[in-house]
């Protein structure tokens, strides 16, 4: 792992392969919480439901007191190193949707990381469970191109409607324009 690495698709494939190899070799039983693999990151509980388990899990967590969905964002892991801090049994994909839930009663937070494959960037919406995800889901769609199935208004939110591309994807250029200084003959 070094920061000098340039992100490319090959790396991501490599990363996937290596994780798969690891999985095949050891096949440890994943630790489960609420029926899905769980991991921990800096003392914070992270659940890793599959796309199919996702809505049901959020729904049942809501019954358990996680009333508020505080945050929903996307991550594009293109070019990330092999160590994704995923528990065994969870295959890494290019995209992740990260959902933060908050329980007021026991003052705890729980985080969900859902793997979204690049080939089919779609996920079921949480809108009917937590209406609060309307804006964040639109933002994830706008920035990452992940569609939320069943969302009532799946349109761009930050960028203009006619914008091409999804800016927060790792393969989307930052769009830096070379700074030109007055009087300079060439762009620097």
């Amino acid at each position: 792992m070094s920061d000098a690495e340039t992100p490319s698709i090959d790396d991501a494939e490599l990363a996937e392969e290596s994780v798969e190899e690891v999985l095949e070799e050891e096949l440890p039983q994943p630790e489960l919480l609420h029926g899905v693999p769980v991991s921990e990151s800096r003392g914070q509980v992270v659940l890793h439901p599959s796309r199919d388990e996702y809505v049901a899990l959020v729904s049942s967590l809501r019954e358990l007191g996680y009333w508020m969905c505080v945050d929903l964002c996307g991550v594009d892991y293109l070019g990330y190193g092999p160590n994704r801090n995923l528990p065994a049994g969870v295959a890494p994909e290019r995209f992740e949707v990260v959902v933060g839930l908050l329980s007021h009663s026991d003052r705890s937070r729980i985080r969900l990381r859902v793997q979204i494959p690049e080939s089919d960037p779609e996920l079921a919406t949480l809108f009917l469970i937590h209406p609060s995800v309307e804006n964040p889901e639109r933002e994830v769609f706008d920035m990452f191109g992940i569609r939320f199935d069943g969302h009532p208004d799946m349109t761009r939110i930050l960028m203009p409607d006619e914008w091409v591309g999804h800016p927060l994807r790792k393969d989307y250029e930052l769009g830096r324009i070379p700074v030109q200084f007055k009087g300079a003959s060439t762009a620097r």
Partner: peptide, 13 residues
């Protein structure tokens, strides 16, 4: 005046 520190896709430079 120049886009400032945000030299990126979103801002008019």
């Amino acid at each position: 005046s120049s886009g400032g520190m945000f030299n990126n896709y979103a801002l008019v430079q």
